[in-house]
Design a protein around this nucleic acid. Structure first.
Lengths: 242, 242
DNA sequence: CGTTCATTTGAGAAACCTCAAGATTGGTGG
DNA sequence: CCACCAATCTTGAGGTTTCTCAAATGAACG
């Protein structure tokens, strides 16, 4: 375990760990702050790699483009997440990182990071944990894509978003999605109509509620209900044991 | 197009780079060699993380298990690939790494690797490239899963396997799959019957051929035909421009 | 040389997609 | 503040892909 100055949020908490990494970077590295607006690209596919970006605020999607125009959202990113890790191997970014809201990213030169890590090993730990976390997250995405029906994937998406907010100390009973139905559908491997129908069914079953403010504000009375719903779609006969 | 066949061992070739990494590890790190047999786990989910494994020979799959028994193959690994990277973030492995054939992996203590990297920076580069490559590969998997019909995903799987062999200096016109139809289907998000039908259709269209030796030996006269097939499924009306 | 597992193929069912029409929302200019 | 426009969202009906269930064939192994 690396010994980093702990944030006031409490040692060991996820909120604290995310804040700690940002603090650590700020203290030990040359950081270039960059404000982005909705739709801005942090970096684009094909661009020469050289810098990593750590999210300080805002919401971001990573979009993979195939040669012939197929387009795929392959990841969502929040405060404390790292962008640009895909570019290390080939020295070119392989995706577009797009801001879904106004926010701030911290640009960090990869070579400078490696140098600074020589006398601040915690930097290396932070980088490796970020990459490892993303691998695990990708694997969970594949698990959802391949084993869950559409409604459960949407429920899983909401749970993931709520969990990401909770980890960052924000309330999770009411979340505001930064994505259109089409973007959600692309991320989850279904059409926008299927997303809409899935949300309607979840609302009908009282797993979620739509706020009066608009269809992108969703109330989640209890996150556990989402988990229960997902499990019910995959093992509907769990009680029938004899 | 990658030029692998021309000078398989030449400097700068992919074959050379994979061999170089193995050589580097061997020269600069304490390595523990470990022989595995088909079905053996290199490591298992939940186990405490501590060591990474680099494939020296054999074929491996990474399997993600959800709590309730859902099971998902999330990656395939060949010579030179790293196993165990998912364990860094949480200090516990999050998947099972399973050998699909007899082979040898090199066990490397993560902390020893970090220490050795202090005076051999190339070790760090190799680790980061491995993680970054896997991220990019995961993104490509998601792209396939979400945007391609079943037949094209099977074609993409064969192309991926052939490409992996070509990068390692092996012939690619005849490949022996180490996976059952059920495993392939799990990896590609479809049932074993759909895999079987897709292979039959590819054979009928002469994109592949079955060897007389058995249904797991597949001849690929030209890898480009697989690419053409994939593109034909996603843009069938490409010629109709007016 | 039988037993077991893997594979192929068919027929019907289910999930999801496509196409289409309204309804709602958010932004913009009058 | 209101009216309008463009984009987004919802819902329905019908079509397509893929899954499920089933049976037969082929391969592997003691």
């Amino acid at each position: 375990m690396t010994e980093v100055t702990r944030s006031p949020k409490g040692p060991g908490s996820v909120v604290g760990r995310i804040a700690d990494v940002l603090q650590l970077l700020q203290d030990s590295m040359p950081i270039q702050r960059r404000i982005v607006r909705p739709g801005d690209s942090v970096y684009q596919v094909g661009q020469a790699f050289g810098t990593l970006y750590v999210v300080n605020s805002g919401y971001y999607k990573m979009v993979n483009l195939s040669g012939e125009g197929r387009e795929q959202v392959v990841g969502l990113y929040f405060k404390g997440d790292w962008l640009g890790l895909d570019g290390i191997a080939t020295a070119h970014y392989t995706c577009d990182a797009v801001a879904m809201d106004t926010g701030e990213v911290w640009a960090i030169r990869y070579d400078a990071l490696i140098q600074a890590a020589a006398h601040t090993p915690a930097l290396l730990t932070a980088l490796h944990e970020a990459m490892s976390r993303e691998l695990t997250r990708d694997h969970e995405s594949m698990l959802s894509l391949c084993t869950l029906p559409a409604d459960a994937r949407v429920a899983g998406f909401l749970r993931y978003w709520a969990h990401a907010l909770a980890q960052r100390g924000q309330r999770t009973d009411q979340i505001t999605l930064r994505m259109t139905r089409a973007e959600i559908g692309n991320y989850l491997g279904m059409t926008l109509e299927t997303v809409s129908r899935a949300l309607s069914r979840l609302a009908r079953g009282d797993v979620i509620r739509f706020s009066e403010k608009g269809r992108r504000d969703i109330q989640i009375p209890q996150v556990d209900a989402l988990t229960a719903f997902i499990q019910s779609t995959v093992a509907p006969m769990a009680a029938a044991v004899h």
